[in-house]
């Protein structure tokens, strides 16, 4: 009788232990998806209903460079014609004497000609049309350095459009005195940047990555100069929202660049555009 009771107690203990072991085993299996390869992460992203086109695995080269909005634009602006212009700080604000009518489909061609004309736009040859940053209210041209665009307010031409789709005028910022601070170094691939962005929880479930560009972003200001570095810029469209948020990943280290004082230096102030 005594022996039977001991057996009963043992049985109860072992069953409880089995249940516990089974539970902990199961919990470990779930969520243990820290897969080694990027492919598994991409698959996981698809499971989270994130839409994106297949990222490339190519590595590129980029520079750290510095520059500022100095007097270069002011000097070459003296040659400009057919417009009323003034400077607000280092920004050139101009109104065309005769608004330029843009027709559907050929807006880019018309503006390309204007930008290329040194009598109309100063330093225009260094800028290029950006379809992604432009919208119905303004058309944006971005300055290029070392064959890559700079996505920053400090290096843009913005053409303002009125309700009749006419260009009334523009505002321009120009980055002068560009100096390379270090020799070219290899960037990480788009695929790696995308998977890291996801792993930092920067892409919510159900979001859509509309486009990806390798472009320069301002990282910080030091000694009166802006310092830029190559970044992978992801346009993330969040579910149930019309706005697109640009997320920037440091193309050297894979770190997500954030606004505010997350960085160690107090003058770190990166930009994140919100497009509508």
């Amino acid at each position: 009788m005594n022996f039977k009771r001991i057996q009963m107690i043992f049985l109860a203990i072992f069953i409880a232990m089995d249940v516990l072991l089974f539970l902990s085993y199961n919990r470990n299996s779930v969520g243990d998806s820290t897969a080694s390869g990027n492919n598994n992460i991409l698959e996981e992203m698809r499971k989270d209903q994130i839409t994106f086109s297949k990222p490339t695995t190519d590595k590129h080269e980029g520079y750290y460079f510095s520059g500022n909005n100095g007097d270069a634009l002011r000097q070459s602006a003296t040659n400009l014609q057919q417009q009323d212009l003034h400077f607000s700080g280092s920004e050139l604000v101009s109104e065309f004497k005769k608004p330029v009518k843009l027709t559907d489909g050929s807006a880019k061609q018309i503006l390309d000609k204007i930008v290329a004309n040194p009598g109309l736009i100063a330093k225009g040859k260094q800028y290029e049309y950006s379809k992604q940053l432009s919208n119905n209210n303004e058309i944006i041209y971005v300055q290029r350095v070392a064959k890559k665009p700079i996505y920053s307010h400090f290096c843009q031409i913005r053409f303002d459009l009125d309700s009749q789709h006419r260009v009334i005028g523009y505002s321009q910022n120009y980055l002068g005195g560009v100096k390379f601070l270090k020799e070219a170094s290899k960037t990480i691939s788009e695929e790696r940047a995308l998977t890291w962005l996801y792993q930092y929880n920067e892409i919510p479930n159900g979001a859509k990555v509309s486009w990806v560009h390798l472009a320069y972003t301002r990282l910080l200001t030091a000694r009166g100069q802006y310092v830029f570095l190559p970044t992978w810029v992801f346009a993330v469209k969040i579910n149930n929202s019309s706005s697109v948020i640009l997320k920037r990943v440091n193309a050297y280290t894979g770190e997500v660049i954030k606004t505010g004082d997350n960085n160690q230096t107090s003058n770190a102030n990166s930009e994140i555009f919100t497009l509508t």
Binding site: L21, S24, N28, G31, D32, T34
Partner: peptide, 21 residues
């Protein structure tokens, strides 16, 4: 069960169980 937990490296404390690493 305990054998399975010991032998499978994926369940040791070494692995990162969280998604955000």
């Amino acid at each position: 069960l305990s054998g399975m937990m010991w032998t499978n490296p994926a369940h040791s404390n070494l692995s990162n169980r969280t998604k955000v690493t």
